[in-house]
Each structure stands twice: as C-alpha cells, then as structure tokens.
Nucleic acid binder design. Structure first.
Lengths: 213, 213, 213, 213
DNA sequence: AATGAATGAGGGTTCATTCAT
DNA sequence: TATGAATGAACCCTCATTCAT
C-alpha cells in the first residue's frame, strides 16, 4: 500500500467504541499494526477465512490485545471498509477536480480508479465483501461514491457541458461501468493499457453507441 | 421463484461427482428439494451463515441425505451458481433475441434483468457471493454474460445499427452498468419504474452524455 | 490369496446368525464375494477405515445386500478372523506334522509361518487388529495356536526328543518368537532368507544362548 | 501409574508443533492433565472409541483447550506412544544394567517387563494399538526395543558370556518371547508368579530345548 | 496495556444401519 | 434376494471471545 497506515483515533472511534481509543503513543502504534495486518489478512483470505489470531500474529501482538482496540471481528472489518473507501476517494477526488470539464473528469476518474485497483487489489476485495459482512458499509460506500458522480454530472450540466437531464440513473450506470472495468482490467488483467481503456469507455460515455460521423 | 425446481441430473452431476446422480425417481425428488432449499437458505443467510442442517430441515430430509447428493457445502453452492446463471440467461436471452435492433436489445436486456433481479433477489445474492466462495464460478458467470453482450454488439455493428468499433471494453461497461442498476433499482428499490430506468439508461447508452439537439 | 474364497455356510452361521445362511446358490456366491472383498478392504485399510459401502463396492453388490448376510460390521470381521486363523492353521499343520522330530517341527512351523505371512500380509494384519475389535477372537486365535505348540512340545518330550519339563510358558515363548520374526522378516523385510531365519531361530530354540562347544 | 505425569515440553513439542508448547506454568499443568487423561481414556476404550470430549472431561478442561496443546487426536496418541515407550525403557533399563551377566540381564529384563505390564496395562494396549493408528511409532518402538536387546547380546558375547554368533534374529526372537509372555502372564493372568515365569523362560533361552543333563 | 490460556457453541462430515421398493 | 435411498447419532475441529495474570 502506498499509504499503509490507517489513520488512528478517528476510524476506530467512529466505529462506535469511543472507550477503545488509545491514549498513549504505544497504544496508537499497536492499533495501527492491527489495522495494517487486518487489511492484508482480509484481502488475502477474505473475511471468513481470516482469523483474529492470524491478524494478531501478523501484527506481532498477543491475541488478547486485539480486544483492547476492537469489540469484534466485524468492527475492525467495518473500520477497514470505511477507511478504504476514504482512501479511494482521497486518491481519485483531487485528480477529478483538476479536470477541465465533466467529460474529462469522468475519464480521469475511471483511469485513476483503474490504477488504484491495480495497486490495491485488497481494497477492492474488502469493499466488495462488505456486501456479505457489513451490508450498511457496503451500501454507504456505493451510495456516497455514486452521489459524487451524480454531483459532478449535475454540475457539468449546469455548466452546459453535458446534457441537462442527467440524474441518479446515469450516475449508477457510470458507477457500475467503472467498477466492472476495474474488476476486468484492474484486477484480472495486469497488462491492460489503463489509459486506453479509460479513453474507450469515456468515448462511449460521451457519444453513446450511435454511429459516429 | 418462477421456476423453482433446479433441473436434476445435469447440474449436480457436472459439479464433479458423477456417482451421486440419483438413480430413482425418489432420488431425483430429494435432490430437487435440497437444491430448492439451498437456494432459499443461501439467499436469505449467505453462504457462511447458512448451515447444511438448515437446508435439510427446509427440504424436509434427514441431515445425512444431503451427502447422498453432494460432497460438501461448497459443491452445492457451486451447483447453484451454475444453475442460477443459467436461469438468468434463459430468462433474458429469448426476450433479447426478439428485439428489432441492437439498441432495443440492450434496453430489453436491461429491463428483463431488472425484473428478474426483483423477482429473484436470492439469485443476485448467490451469484455475487460466489466472488468469495467459488471464484471460478463467479468469474465464469460474468465472463460468459459479458461475452454475450459483446456478441450482440458486434452483430449489431455488422448490421450497421451501431458504431463499428465496439468491443470488449464496451461490453464490460454495459455489463457493469446493468449489474449496478440491478442492485440499485432491482434489489434496493422495490417501487422504481423498471421500464423507465431501462429507457433512461438505454438512452445514455445510445446517445452518450453529449447535449442533445 | 491362494485360497481366496472363504468357505460359506459354516463361517457365517457360526458367527451367531443362523438365519442369514444363504439358501440358494446365488446367495452363496454373494456371501463369498462379500467375504473376499472384506478381507481385502480390512487388510488394506484396517477395521475402522474400512467401510461397509467400500466392501459392497468391491464385491459389486448393493449396500443393502450386506445386511442380508451379516448383522454388522463386527460380525463379518469376526467371521474373517476365524476363517483366517483356520487358513493359517491349515497351511502350517500338515507341514509340521510331517516333520521327523519336534525340533525340526518347530523349524518347519516357523519357516512355513514366515512364508505364509509374506504371502498373506492382510491376514497378519486382520488377526492382529482383532485385539482392538474383537478381543475374544484375538485371544482364541493365540490360545489355540499356542495350545498346538504346547501339544507338540509335550509330545516331543514324551518321545524323549526334548527336555521333559516343557509346558505352557515355553509354548508362549515360542509363539511370541514366531510372531515377531513373522512381523520382522515376513511383513517388513521382503528379501530376507526365510529358511535361514528359521534355522537361526531354531538353533537358538534348540541350544539356547550358551556357548557352543 | 507410578509416574503418572507425562514430562511436558519435550514430548508434546517433539510431536511436531513447537508453537503449542505452553509458556506458562498453568499451561504446563493443563497439558499434563490432558496427557494423563488421554492415557486412561485410550487405555480403557481404545483409540477409536475414545473421544476428545471424554479426554477433556476427564482432564477437567474445556473441549477447546485440547487444541491449545495438540493439533489432533492422532497427535496426542503419537505423543503418548512415545512417552510410554520411554516410560517402559526407563523402568527396565536400570534394572537390566545392574545385572551381573547377560543371561541374568535377560531374565531381569523379562521379569521387570512383566511387572510393568501388570501395573500399566494401558501402556501395553496403547503401544500395541499404534500398529493401527500410527504405524511409524509402533515400528519405532519395537525397533528401538529390539535394538537394545541386540546390543546387550553382542556385549555379552564380547564378554564371552554367551555364544558369539548372536545377532538380529536372536534379538527379535527374544523380543517376541517377552511380549507374548507379557500378554499372557502380565495382562491376562493377574496371579501368575512373575519371577517364576521369567525363570522358566530364561532357562529356555539359556539352555534351549535340549535335554538337560 | 499486554499476554496467552481457557472457554464452548457451532457446524461440517461420516457411516453403520434401516427401510421401501 | 437385491437395490439404493434415507436416517441421524456421533465426533472432530475451529475460532471468536473472555479471563486471569
């Protein structure tokens, strides 16, 4: 991971257990090690095959220490999903915002997403598995992600760059398109030319299937 | 389920244990009851929370009877994924093939998919969970599904109905679009007007984001 | 096996289930197939790892047919132990009886035992496993075997061929010696010169450890 | 048992799971309780009828604690066989070594073996059952035991106490003799005069069957 | 805060035996 | 007699969580 360390304090606390926030520097280090280890373990083996003891083993802590920082296996998973969702957002958003127009923004968004998936396959897997482990997190992730797409579309429309009738359906369509291309060309195909994929998909998005002049 | 009964013989046998094919009519009935029960159980509780004993309880058979027809929990899951993938294909394909042109075909395909998801939420869930239980089945499902989309696109292009440069990327983009709309409006939103959703998405697909005249 | 077919009628009946004696020729054939299959299965996999269904599979009969001829897994095992004990006796006895004197008889008994073990490893294993499956059969086998040794010793002493004070202890000592040499040189060592082993052991038996003149 | 407590650390660790060695005194106590309970359970009911839950019930620990110290039922059995083989050796060896000469050593060895079997019937049974549970342990036990006999014989021959041509065959013959006498007079016959049995067998060993002057 | 042993519910799987045809 | 499906008790093992130190 480029930014392997999960931000401490925040993430764990928000998960609903304020008392477990570490008070000392040593505690913060342990929490961080646990989150990093969990990201690898969940990414490699999936939620159910992952075990707390494997996480603590990877983290180099005692088994019992896990429960100093998390109430349950589900809770650390939830913390990770939220964190990874944020990671992804933080990677994509600035690039997209620097785009000259909405069509370009979508191309850049897709390309940066493909790149991110390729670099962080475990993130893709963890977020997807949330569908079966922590449905609320899963849904929140995609709803907020798609909401950002929608906002961009509507802003672009307001600026007159694209058709005016864009809305929620378009946003979900684009979201799905991106995710599947991420799976196909980010996860499964290590050699695909990401920029080219993004260009092709963006052209479809911009012009549709109609015959071009 | 509209067609609640899993075709026997085929599905179970292909899963790799030819010796477990039932030889009597009674055996075929039991196998069918088990598959139906498993579809409900896996759909409602997910693979890991589902238990073999709950499946046999639902099926009204003894626990041991499960192992007369399947070698393991994984095997019945795999059989189900394949069966459900086929169910979905059998639902959508004839409708799509009756479409007057490729653009319409994609609209009809999406609309029938949305309808199918809404009627068979458990199928959506089971296929998706294969990503974490039986990756090969998961991948096969989406690869064959997308391959069908691609074939349609290329046929449409050959007929001059759509742009000539369509290919794999477009097919995956459309596949992802459909799946996400299925999740959003088939699974999550029971009241959405499916035909309207399909129309909007199809219009995007046909014309892109460009401002319309 | 040289004599692969277990004598029918007798053996099964004596095991305590007279009603299960086959009445037709076809029935006798089935019983025989089951016993032969069981001998191989128990010999190869041991009592606990052997399964009734594997036995019937080997025998080429239906699972249910097993219970037409035997009341339980234990019963067929018991029948086999008795049969194999008889096989062994029938192989060794005539050879021993043809010996010119008691010392030679013991040598010939050991040598023929070693040969038998080497040819019928499964018999050795089945009889030994009776210690943990059917203790009565196990004990009966060794008690009758040792009783025959003792009889020979006493007859030999009466004929003045060997010391007069031979008795039960000597018989058990000889029995144990034979069994261990059978394990070491019959079972474990396929290449040992059986006649030479028997000669060495017999010399020990005849002359003891004392320094020879 | 005279020495009911299995030495911890060693035995369990050697079984192949170094990570399961207890690190605290409490852990060592639990491991010891489990081994003691397993010795009784296996001795009374045999490997297959013994259950882990019965072992932990006897030991007064939770079921799960078993797996803190052993990977499987087979592993604890293996540990026990090794331990019991050592117990037996430690009982017999010093007595034998104190013998004035080789012939006496064999008598003392047999007599002490008979006494040991009578006091520790479960040890006899567990070692013998290894033939069907853990063949490698079984074979190792008898090979090392017989190797010790052989060494004694050769040392005795070198000292001129017995015939010079003693070797492996003699050692296995003596081993088998001892084991069978152990079964007959140690296990089965609680009243036999052990010293007298050993004397008779030793006389056979020393002088053979030849008529005595 | 850290450690690691202890707990026990839970579930997948086996297979001897019974039963209906 | 033969067949093969049905039955369900039994058991090994996992692992999230708790507890004592």
């Amino acid at each position: 991971m480029d930014q392997p360390h999960v931000a401490t304090g925040d993430t764990a606390a928000e998960a609903g257990n304020p008392d477990k926030t570490p008070r000392t520097e040593r505690g913060r280090r342990t929490l961080r090690k646990l989150l990093d280890a969990a990201a690898i373990e969940f990414g490699e083996r999936g939620f159910h095959d992952a075990s707390i003891s494997a996480i603590t083993r990877r983290a180099g802590t005692a088994l019992g220490s896990f429960y100093t920082y998390f109430d349950s296996k589900d809770e650390i998973f939830q913390a990770l999903v939220r964190y990874m969702s944020e990671q992804l957002r933080d990677h994509v958003t600035p690039l997209v915002q620097a785009a000259p127009d909405e069509i370009s923004a979508e191309r850049i968004g897709l390309e940066s997403f493909l790149g991110f998936v390729r670099e962080h396959k475990e993130i893709y897997r963890i977020i997807d598995e949330a569908e079966f482990v922590d449905y609320a997190s899963y849904r929140r992730h995609y709803e907020t992600t798609v909401a950002r797409v929608r906002q961009r579309l509507e802003d672009g429309a307001a600026r007159g760059e694209i058709r005016a009738d864009v809305g929620e359906v378009h946003a979900w369509a684009i979201g799905g398109m991106n995710v599947f291309l991420g799976m196909r060309y980010g996860l499964w195909d290590a050699d695909a030319d990401i920029a080219e994929i993004a260009r092709i998909a963006n052209d479809l998005l911009a012009n549709g299937l109609k015959k071009q002049d």
